[in-house]
Design a binder for these strands. Sequence first.
DNA 1: AAATTTGTTAACCAAACGGTTAAACTATAT
DNA 2: ATATAGTTTAACCGTTTGGTTAACAAATTT
Lengths: 203, 203
Amino acid sequence: MDKIKTENTETEILIAAKEIFQQKGMAGARMQEIADKAKINKALLHYYFRSKQLLFEAVFKSAFSLLAPQLNKVLNDDSDLFEKIKRFTESYVSFVIKHPYLPNFVIQELNKNPEFVLKLRSEKNFPSISKFKLQVSDAIQQGIIKPIEAEQLFINIMCLNIFPFIGEPLLMALVDVDKDNYNKILENRKTEVAEFIINSIKI
Amino acid sequence: MDKIKTENTETEILIAAKEIFQQKGMAGARMQEIADKAKINKALLHYYFRSKQLLFEAVFKSAFSLLAPQLNKVLNDDSDLFEKIKRFTESYVSFVIKHPYLPNFVIQELNKNPEFVLKLRSEKNFPSISKFKLQVSDAIQQGIIKPIEAEQLFINIMCLNIFPFIGEPLLMALVDVDKDNYNKILENRKTEVAEFIINSIKI
DNA sequence: AAATTTGTTAACCAAACGGTTAAACTATAT
DNA sequence: ATATAGTTTAACCGTTTGGTTAACAAATTT
């Protein structure tokens, strides 16, 4: 049953690497720290993943493959536009509570390594905006929403949902609340954000 | 006139350090690279700033002192609420074009070092939301805007303005446009964002 | 102009880093 | 039981890192 043992170790490494990389980034992460967290020898990291770069890429891709389905909830879901926005804003908060460092990690590393986006794009399941575009122009033609470019609306949805987590330390200081009260604000945003968006676009 | 020469070197170091730190972060920056960019010996960095940490803190505080006045345009300006939102969204884009890495740098390092916010907060000119709160509740009472918590509105304004730059590589890929077309989208946001916000809250 | 302080450099250092090696251990197959 | 293949470790290696030193150069002071 060496297969099981191997998979266990490999999984332990990935779990440990995910935590360290997501908190400290590629540059700030240390192989020794990952090994310690996985409770194994440092050499084992290289036995399973050859280099820091390859381990990082494994973690990054796995992180993005968790994020992509969330984004597809806006882009490729069949439900009604308003309903979709409501559902997304609600589920996204729950998602980030489960994976607090993930969106920031993905965005940060993409900023430091923009070419990396090409690798992601070529993979299947990479979210596409085309369906969403049709849905928006349909809604405009049917007189349900005011004219707006689908790209702008999509960006707005992303902004309002993702940034409160990425900008948390800054926003907490500016709004002048502690962690508990900021969490209450985030909790309220589950419904608040969808309302804010729909108010803006509905006729 | 050694004062002038000193200040020049010190300034050269700060300029170089700002570029390197903002692009690569504290963990990714190398003292040698900063020295090279400033065209001086590495030992001089330590002569003027003693350690990487202190040099970083100097850069960070200087970066934040550029950002703070921008934020105060929303929080402590005397103009009318709608006018304020319009002006801010327009001027923020210009600001980020001038300092492309700055907001991301501040937010990223605050995430990796949340205690740092305390140091910023204690300094004068740290933006405060209290005036904005009054303005919002006044506008609600006068029936100009729908009821909304000032904190939520402020967070929304921040989201819609800051995130398009921080999330640029991701958003570019999702919206499926190249840099030129993304810049056009950003250009449109100068007016689009304020419109979006005001549409949502006005009665 | 001599002395002192300030600015600058080349050479160096110890620690930390990513990565390698060779040997030991474990488990299955023969 | 023994060979074989996969797993794990301790010890090691060369390089890079932030930081220091000691000597030199330039400017100020006396």
